[in-house]
């Protein structure tokens, strides 16, 4: 049964990690990069929960770690969006390659 094997969950988590990395490389906007980072954090949480369910002797530990990952993701999203708004107010652009005031 696929829902009872560790392999299925780890494969989904690896897919989330890889597609998040692809998104960070490929996106042309700051908020797209932030979305991809959220995908990576979700994959990490799914990994912890899968190991917690199948391998860990104490199933409370993985749930606590996943909760902490959620808290860090919330803080990261708040800081990231505030930075994006500040950069947009100052530079009037959403293109990360145009933020080159030190270069000129």
């Amino acid at each position: 049964m696929a829902s009872n094997s560790l392999m299925a969950y780890l494969t989904v988590a690896a897919f989330l990690l890889i597609i998040g990395i692809y998104g960070i490389v490929q996106k042309r906007t700051f908020i797209g990069m932030l979305i991809s980072a959220e995908l990576i954090l979700n994959g990490a949480g799914l990994n912890f929960m899968a190991f917690n369910r199948f391998l860990s002797p104490d199933p409370a530990v993985g749930q606590v770690i996943t909760l902490i990952i959620m808290g860090i993701a919330a803080a990261e999203a708040a800081i990231g969006v505030s930075f994006i708004l500040a950069v947009y107010k100052k530079f009037r652009t959403i293109d990360p390659t145009r933020l080159s005031s030190l270069k000129r």
């Binding site: 932030l34 959220e38 999203a77 994006i84 708004l85």
Partner: peptide, 19 residues
């Protein structure tokens, strides 16, 4: 609650206000 509620709302807010 946290991802779909909080982070989703923050990202929608960032998309709609910033651009």
């Amino acid at each position: 609650l946290i991802y779909l509620g909080a982070i989703g709302i923050v990202l929608v807010f960032g998309v709609m206000v910033g651009y």
